[in-house]
């Protein structure tokens, strides 16, 4: 989509990302449960993937066999994910109102058997990358050209399963696999580097055979530029380290470990709406 290069489109993408932010916070307020910090840090990434012309998906045919796969490995950020799916048109936006309600299709963590557009049942950290490696291998076995994008947290990478999967990806030279790390530097209890060091993160991915690129995870244009050039290097799986701020866009939540699963009040929502410059219309 050539329109992406123009500044008007970039502004629209930013507004959509902010809509995802406010929508997710509104859902968390409704359910009195949710993961505000990681929803906010991943909003620009999700907007770029779904609305910036990166993912080849068709909301009218959610199980179209040739679709690109997107797997939200950090499944706790379902608020932002569901909002992006609704904005893309996978289901009506007003369904977002039912987030975590009794018998809702919008479970606290995504369920592929309940909601169109969901590829994997995630929630326990460290599942998305192995599944993505399998999907990428499967695409290759079938001689198909679709790609697999997986979004992980940074704390999540403490799970060893990621590194087992990374070795598989390297061994098989999975050019059709893109790992995006939401590098917000905070996990559940504290900053990652205080809990269990993740640095040198880019070097670690390189050592595991990935072509690594870093980008500002809140610059939709930069994200788009990077993600539209996959693979980053011929013959290698790609890793985009998206440097983000946990709680991005809402000053009181930014860079605060407590906002990992902080629940916004109505007052917080009003403040967030004015900072983000959007309204939630569902």
């Amino acid at each position: 989509m050539p329109e992406a290069a123009n500044p008007e489109h970039a502004a629209r993408l930013k507004a959509q990302a902010n809509w995802i932010r406010l929508s997710a916070m509104t859902m968390t307020n409704h359910a009195q449960l949710g993961h505000t910090g990681g929803d906010l840090s991943s909003a620009d990434i999700l907007a770029t993937l779904y609305l910036g012309g990166i993912l080849r998906v068709d909301p009218q045919q959610p199980r179209w066999p040739q679709r690109d796969r997107f797997i939200l490995s950090k499944g706790h950020c379902s608020g932002a994910f569901y909002s992006a799916l609704a904005l893309k048109g996978f289901f009506p936006r007003d369904q977002l109102k039912t987030f975590m309600d009794p018998l809702s299709m919008l479970n606290g963590h995504p369920d592929r058997n309940k909601l169109p557009g969901v590829e994997a049942n995630t929630g326990p950290l460290g599942h998305g990358l192995p599944i993505s490696v399998g999907a990428a291998l499967g695409a290759r076995m079938r001689g198909e050209t679709w790609r697999v994008f997986v979004l992980t947290g940074d704390g999540e990478l403490q799970e060893g399963s990621n590194w087992e999967a990374a070795m598989t990806a390297q061994h098989y030279g999975l050019e059709n696999l893109v790992v995006i790390v939401d590098r917000n530097r905070i996990q559940q209890g504290d900053f990652t580097e205080k809990t269990l060091k993740m640095e040198p993160l880019a070097d670690r991915w390189r050592a595991f055979g990935f072509a690594v690129v870093e980008a500002d995870g809140h610059d939709c244009k930069a994200l788009r530029d990077r993600l539209s050039r996959v693979p980053f290097e011929a013959g290698k799986p790609s890793c985009l380290i998206a440097n983000t701020v946990k709680g991005k866009g809402v000053s009181f939540a930014e860079n605060q470990p407590a906002w990992h699963h902080g629940v916004p009040t109505r007052e917080h929502l009003a403040a967030a709406a004015s900072e983000l410059g959007v309204e939630v219309d569902w």
Binding site: G126, E156, Q158, E159, Q187, Q188, G189, T195, L196
Partner: peptide, 26 residues
């Protein structure tokens, strides 16, 4: 595995830092 407050061990860590290990999300 990550969160001190979920494990309710803030006091424990403060009192016995040498007998406390956080392995991260693992």
């Amino acid at each position: 595995n990550d969160s001190l407050s979920s494990a309710k061990l803030k006091n424990f860590k403060a009192k016995y830092p040498g007998r406390f290990v956080n392995v991260g999300i693992a």
